[in-house]
Simulated assay, not measured.
Amino acid sequence: MTATAFDVVVIGGGIAGVSIGYELADDRTVCLLEQETTLAFHTTGRSAALYLETFGNATVRSLTTVSRAFLTDPPDTFDGPLLSPRPYLVFARNGREDALAEFCREVRQQAPAVEQVSADEAVDLAPYLRRDAIGAGVLDPDADDIDVHALHQGYVRGLRRRGGQIRTNAPVTALHRAGGGWTVTLDDGDTVTAPIVVDAAGAWADHVADLAGATTAGLTPMIRTIFGVDAPAALTTGALPVVNDLDDTFYIKPEANGLLCSPADETPSHPHDVKPDDLDIARAIESINEVTDLNLRRITSSWAGLRTFAPDRSPVVGFDPRVDGFFWFAGQGGYGIQMADGLARSGAALFRGESLPGDVVAGGVRAAALTPGR
């Protein structure tokens, strides 16, 4: 059994862990622990991420907006570009136009380029939509695809370049605090010590908090299913927008020569290596076929991931109110990739006892909206 000392131990190797680890490694020695044999095995590695300033609550949207500059012009450890244009179209079925107009008014406060479009214009943008099935649309022309792998790996390279160490296949089995520091025990008997532990364990974050005797945050992992289909031969996917039903019965994202589809499901779950549910896929196909001419029958692939939410759907970031030296960086839901920069910089500032970064505050985010126990 060996013991190694660091300033900070970060638990979790998805986008949350590598981004906060990168920021903290600027002036701390950091060890990142990942329970799986590879980083980003669960949610991050299964994400069909978009950059959407219209996505999430006000806190999430603000953190997304302030992250655009980083995603557009990242440091040299990142393979750019991380963003590529992909318009985002939300449509309303007949009779839901008023709700769509309210959605448009709300999100334009954060993303002024968003505009309402007619049903005819929506069909021009996404020709597979059935004109008789939809009432109107809302277009975000400034949405983008995010290269999730390049973003994650850029943080990994940056963390290592700053001296951070990363251990995979390192499940944490015990956390013990004594003498102002933590001893983190791994399942192989090794231990790692540090004054502060950062809980960036995603769907497992409340489990890590239990090991530490911290106040759990009421986080709920929720299943999100994705499946692939072939695009019709006559449909050119390159310029198509992502299409989302206002009522979240499905979304469709162009991908190479095919389409990624999702029932936009949010089924509460325990943390585990989640698999897609055939019934959820069947329901999504039924909803898609109701309002499109795609006539889906056969899928080419399917998978599922866990998106973990606090009750108010804002991230949980800050020191635990009950246990010294335990820092939360969790509850990122389905937004962790698009707001990675803004949230990681905010987390690092709170970790150091500083105010939130100026651009984050100017965007309307307050530390009280992130703090554990709020």
Rank of each mutant, 00 (worst) to 15 (best):
A264Q: 02
D278S: 13
V323T: 13
A233R: 15
A231Q: 15
S314N: 14
L260W: 09
N295M: 00
R283S: 10
S262Q: 03
G228M: 06
N257T: 15
A217P: 01
F227E: 05
E290V: 04
I226N: 13
A264M: 09
G325R: 13
A330R: 08
V274Q: 11
D320Y: 04
L306K: 14
N295C: 11
V316R: 14
T308G: 05
D273V: 02
I252E: 09
C261T: 02
F327S: 07
L235Q: 08
F326T: 01
T216V: 15
G305Y: 10
L235N: 05
L279I: 13
P321S: 10
S287W: 05
D312P: 04
I281R: 02
R322E: 04
P241T: 01
A256Y: 13
P254C: 08
L306D: 01
F329K: 06
D320N: 13
L306Y: 12
R313D: 02
D210Y: 02
N244C: 03
H272Y: 09
V317M: 12
P271E: 12
R224L: 04
G213Y: 14
P254L: 05
A239F: 03
P276V: 05
P241W: 00
E266N: 08
D245A: 00
R298F: 07
I252A: 06
E255V: 14
